[in-house]
């Protein structure tokens, strides 16, 4: 019976890159502000996966602590960002990012 190697860290990095890219494509191609926000969360998740994989490969807990801080920032961003979306919806009736040009005068 051949011995199976451990899952190499580059595969975890590749999965992280795939998730990040799917999120980035969503941010670029979608026009709905809430879906853009969801894609941003997916990109953060891809980066978190890379942190955890590297921390596990190096027997270090610093990656876990960094992911903890990324989660903190994501929670604060969600609260403020969704409040801004609600405000823009009250003002314009939709959250299409092509029509949010309030500073254009």
């Amino acid at each position: 019976m051949p011995t199976l190697p451990e899952v190499p860290i580059s595969l975890y990095f590749a999965l992280s890159a795939i998730l990040f890219t799917i999120g980035a494509i969503g941010v670029i191609t979608r026009r709905n502000a809430i879906i853009i926000f969801l894609c941003l969360e997916l990109m953060l998740n891809g980066v978190n996966l890379a942190f955890i994989a590297a921390g596990n490969a190096l027997n270090s807990l610093d990656g876990v602590v960094f992911v903890f801080f990324v989660m903190t920032v994501a929670a604060a961003e969600a609260a403020v960002g969704l409040a801004i979306f609600v405000m823009i919806f009250r003002l314009k009736g939709n959250v299409n990012v092509d029509q949010i040009n309030l500073l254009k005068g």
Binding site: N45, I52, N56, V64, A78, L82
Partner: peptide, 30 residues
């Protein structure tokens, strides 16, 4: 995947904070 990478704390925090709190907030706003 976090669980298989020996990061149980982050796996639980991911389910509670992301899948629980943040996504509930997003669904409420939608």
């Amino acid at each position: 995947i976090y669980l298989s990478l020996n990061a149980q704390f982050i796996a639980v925090a991911q389910v509670i904070v992301y899948a629980g709190a943040i996504m509930m907030l997003v669904l409420f706003v939608i």
